[in-house]
Write a protein that binds this DNA or RNA. Structure first.
Lengths: 194, 194
DNA sequence: TTTTATTTGGAACATTCGTTCCAATATGTA
DNA sequence: TACATATTGGAACGAATGTTCCAAATAAAA
């Protein structure tokens, strides 16, 4: 009996994510969102509740797709170390492809809002832990295979690698220089050798 | 003849910096600034032009004081390597002292505005270059003294270290765990050892 | 004390903000 | 085709935004 939704919710979340990424949460107006998504205020409010609801949903969507992309890099090779390198390559590729300098939504809004929005902080933290977990598993495997140095614990190394990835976002957004980013990654990863 | 200014411009810039840091550029209203600084709209507009003018001035002020703090750490010891460690210790202390999770104004607003405000990007870039320069000089000196490995160039190492510092801000704001941050620093700095 | 230049407080401005509301529209079923 | 139901577009809301303006207050110089 009912009229069905005329739009794809996922597409809307993607558009919203791009806007929030480019202009920040407070810099993005409901009018921007209406224009970019092409649908009306009513539809947005009816579907997502309010601006913050739409924001959180697009943030969660982004987080999941990022996590998916990450895990895809873990199966590229039998070598854990090569897979870690693949993760770094993927991130750098992503940063360099971002010509509009929009950056990573998770990092952007975590810095914009961490003092005032605990929901955002919580999502960032769990995302950070997930990534560190993935890295830690790869490191543990690499250490037992003997291709990664046992000088530091998997946990410590995974934290260092996540830290480097986060740094690359910040650095890369402000200086999108392929050679510089690759060299930073090479040095950060050289810890795994020996 | 004229009535003299009734307030200290530096104090106002400091207050403004704290607000912009906590709530971001777009999240900070002129009303917030009026309340926090205690002076009137007229005085602010007369002294700084407009919101963006006040913002840029407080950003520049912050950048200079940060640069000063950094250089102070470079003279603590005769050992370049120890001075680099001092820089990292200083940064981590700063991050842990930041209970309100306000973060670093330069990083925060560079991520919030880099897609829309080229002035901010320019300041961040020159700040990044300055810091890398300081680090590079210390590394070069350390290498010639034989206390820092020559495996990587000073430029590459300085970029890696800056990248780690930037990462620490992001990581530390979301997980202000002293042990975790210190261990990340220890690993990032272990590159300098043979 | 008087003069003079400047700052100051607060009212007022037009815009934009997020949100609400309702009539009109459009769809799947009977 | 006609009914029932959910979506849709757009007007409208009050509150908050950045900014302007001017009269009143103030401090240094005469």
């Amino acid at each position: 009996m009912p009229k069905t939704k005329q739009f794809d919710e996922t597409e809307v979340l993607l558009k919203a994510k791009e806007l929030f990424c480019e202009k920040g949460y407070n810099g993005t107006s409901m009018d921007d969102l209406v224009q970019a998504t092409g649908l009306s205020r009513s539809s947005i409010y009816d579907t997502f509740g309010d601006k913050h609801g739409l924001f959180m949903k697009s943030l969660n969507y982004y987080r999941c797709s990022q996590q998916g992309d990450l895990e895809k890099q873990c199966t590229r090779s039998d070598s854990p170390k090569k897979n870690i390198r693949a993760i770094f390559d993927y991130y750098i590729k992503d940063i360099l492809a971002d010509r509009g300098r929009k950056g990573c939504l998770l990092i952007n809004v975590s810095l914009e809002l961490s003092a005032v929005d605990k929901d955002v902080t919580a999502i960032f933290q769990s995302n950070m832990e997930d990534i560190e977990q993935v890295l830690s598993a790869l490191i543990k495997e690499g250490q037992s295979k003997g291709e990664i140095s046992k000088k530091f614990s998997p946990k410590a190394l995974s934290r260092h690698l996540f830290n480097s990835l986060a740094g690359l976002r910040v650095t890369g957004m402000n200086r999108p220089d392929a050679d510089a980013l690759r060299e930073i990654a090479r040095i950060a990863l050289s810890i795994l050798d020996e």
